[in-house]
């Protein structure tokens, strides 16, 4: 009841322990930063320096040549257009897929939170199990379903797959949020005669800004970083960046120029890293929310 200063958690007492603590944290930080720094620094080296073989050395003459090559002329197979088309494809796929799966998840989540039925729990359980089903057990029938609508390996097809595969996840996140929203709010809207969709649009959505951002960030990261679905469902004209990147790296000519490969890898990682660094708290919150699935 009483407002008092926040209780301070016990600290490691002895100075040695405190030192050990920081030593551990610094070593861990180095472990986490190592691959990123290494890849970035080598992507900035010209080929002569790469051939000297010292991976950890800083670039003596930093150059963006490898980045330029990776961006527009590295070969992914037969064509040599770099990762640029892949970036555009990824944007084209990710943006609509994120928007649709997030909004549909919000609507479903609200409906499920409102839905009082003996079977509601069972359905939630089935949805939750859906989160953990290995994609492999659904891939081939999905291919068949899409083919029968002429959507396999098309732009619309890949978006549809991302939306459907992401739906249980977004729905569950929103449902968990909406279960915590006082029911009186919906009831009040209902007393005013608002329909379900009207209530959702005018009353519930405006309350949901935070969770919308959180879910959109999670979905963005997930879809942008997807490899398997893009590989199978996108079709050659819409291959996302992750697929293009592996094609560049695994291309026979690619292995000769690691700096270009690394530059391509960094370019691929940049969008999600930007989102991560800009969204900070939301990202963390989303992870914590997503972790307690159910």
């Amino acid at each position: 009841m009483t407002r008092s200063p926040p209780f301070e958690r016990p600290v490691f007492g002895p100075r040695a322990a405190r030192f050990g603590l920081y030593a551990f944290l610094f070593v861990s930080a180095a472990f986490f930063l190592l691959p990123l720094l290494l890849v970035i620094s080598n992507s900035l080296k010209p080929m002569e320096e790469i051939r000297q073989g010292n991976l950890l050395a800083f670039p003596v003459k930093p150059t963006f040549d490898a980045w330029v090559t990776a961006w527009k002329s590295a070969c992914t197979g037969l064509d040599c257009g770099g990762v640029r088309p892949g970036l555009w494809n990824s944007v084209k796929i990710t943006v609509p897929a994120v928007v649709i799966s997030t909004l549909a998840g919000a609507l479903n989540g609200y409906a499920l939170a409102q839905w009082k039925s003996r079977h509601a729990n069972l359905i939630m359980l089935l949805v939750m199990v859906g989160l953990f089903i290995p994609y492999q057990a659904m891939l081939y029938p999905t291919v068949k379903i899409l083919s029968s609508f002429g959507l396999f390996r098309t732009y619309c097809g890949i978006i549809l797959v991302h939306v459907v595969y992401g739906l249980p996840y977004t729905t569950l996140l929103f449902r968990n949020f909406y279960v915590g929203v006082p029911e009186e709010i919906s009831r009040a809207a209902r007393m005013e005669g608002a329909s379900f969709f009207r209530t959702f649009r005018s009353v519930i959505l405006p309350l949901s800004t935070n969770i919308l951002v959180v879910v959109a960030i999670l979905q963005f990261t997930g879809i942008w970083n997807d490899y398997l679905l893009g590989l199978i469902f996108a079709g050659n004209d819409n291959l996302p960046m992750t697929v293009q990147l592996t094609n560049i790296v695994n291309n026979a000519r690619g292995s000769a120029s690691p700096n270009v490969n690394m530059a391509a890898a960094v370019i691929t990682a940049i969008p999600t890293l930007i989102v991560y660094f800009l969204s900070g708290r939301y990202f963390v919150r989303g992870i914590a929310a997503g972790a307690v699935k159910g």
Binding site: A29, T221, W224, D226, Y276
Partner: peptide
Amino acid sequence: LFRTIFLYPLAVSLIVTGLSWRWV
């Protein structure tokens, strides 16, 4: 700062993760 460093790999795709460690 530490948390940012420990968490950023999660924003990196497993493809880029795998490639980076392959090079390292």
